[in-house]
């Protein structure tokens, strides 16, 4: 397809992004980056791991997104006594007719907020992550396809780690993005305070349908990624695996293991989604850099030496971005 025509098409088809963001901003003050990343996850057909202290509108954000899309939303509070059946559903015996019938769990929704995912034991986490990967659920002898769009937003609390079940690296890798959110600015906080104290409830109107998202996903596949951009993505990922080859000798002892091929896929997908949000039919290096931190931060593990020096995977990614030449 001609890039100019594709560009024009994307410009028209991506108009809903502004509408969606405007609608969400009626309720969510600030946190523009979080909202933008939620849409990236939605468009990239990925799931999101959200890390932030309590009270930063994580739940409200996904609830508002669901409302603005007229999609089904469920919140599941993960606790140590949660069972897989509580999540995916189970078979219940009906005494009246002597048969078993299936009671579907809350996972059968478009948007799932898995609140404090690290509080539930491994078997529940596995059940959720399997559903995220396969996008289907099997109860008894019946398999059910999950309704699209299906987005899981799992939250983790960086404080209070006692009695939690941290997600294994292999499972964390299944999340397309890991977003870290911080406190709002002073001005934003003032706005939040006024908005909540005045007693006026801002109602979110549905501005798009789930079908629009599915349509946008198809369009995203058509977005042009030049080979220079592809090489740039590969350079970033490979620099995390063998930093010496990129003149980053000092990182060799700081990286325990680098980003996986799934990171490469998600970085390319995320960059395409970013280009779509920016209403472009082609990816530019800004798109890659813009999403890079969120795609890679949970996929690069640092060594004990790095931890001793209080260096995180984010520092490592920043060093890589500062060293790898932009095409």
């Amino acid at each position: 397809m001609d890039i100019a025509a594709l560009n024009e098409k994307i410009k028209q088809e991506s108009a809903f992004v502004d509408l969606l963001m405007n609608e969400i901003s009626k309720v969510i003050v600030g946190q523009k980056q979080m909202v933008e990343r939620l849409i990236v996850g939605l468009l990239g057909n990925g799931h999101i791991l959200l890390e932030g202290v309590p009270g930063l509108a994580k739940t409200l954000a996904i609830k508002t997104l669901a409302s603005a899309m007229k999609a089904k939303y469920q919140r599941i509070q993960f606790t140590p006594d949660l069972l897989p059946a509580d999540l995916i559903g189970t078979m219940i015996y009906n005494q009246k007719d002597g048969n078993f019938f299936i009671r579907k769990g809350p996972i059968f929704s478009n948007f799932i907020l898995a609140d404090e995912i690290n509080r539930a034991p491994a078997k529940v986490q596995s059940a959720l992550l399997e559903a995220m990967q396969e996008r289907q659920i099997t109860i008894g002898d019946q398999t059910f396809k999950l309704e699209e769009p299906f987005l899981v937003l799992a939250t983790q609390n960086p404080i209070e780690q006692e009695g939690t079940y941290p997600l294994p690296e292999a499972q964390v890798d299944r999340f397309m993005l890991k977003i870290k959110i911080s406190y709002p600015t002073r001005e934003e906080e003032l706005k939040i305070m006024k908005q909540n104290v005045d007693g006026v409830e801002n109602l979110v109107q549905p501005v798009i349908s789930p079908a629009d998202i599915l349509n946008a996903r198809n369009l995203i596949h058509e977005i042009y990624v030049d080979e220079k951009i592809e090489k740039y993505i590969l350079d970033i990922v490979f620099a995390s695996r063998s930093p010496k080859d990129f003149g980053l000798e000092k990182l060799s002892d700081l990286i325990s293991y680098g980003a996986s091929p799934r990171a490469t896929i998600n970085l390319a997908l995320g960059a395409k989604a970013m280009a779509f949000i920016k209403r472009r039919g082609y990816v530019i290096p800004e798109d890659v850099r813009g999403i890079c931190l969120d795609v890679l931060r949970h996929r690069i593990a640092v060594t004990y030496e790095a931890e001793a020096e209080e260096l995180t995977s984010e520092n490592v990614i920043q060093e890589i971005l500062n060293k790898v030449e932009v095409p």
């Binding site: 890039i3 100019a4 560009n7 042009y224 030049d226 220079k228 951009i229 472009r280 039919g281 082609y282 990816v283 530019i284 290096p285 095409p327």
Partner: peptide, 9 residues
């Protein structure tokens, strides 16, 4: 230049 490099312009 970006248009030429990345968008087949």
């Amino acid at each position: 230049a970006d248009m030429v490099k990345f968008a087949k312009f």
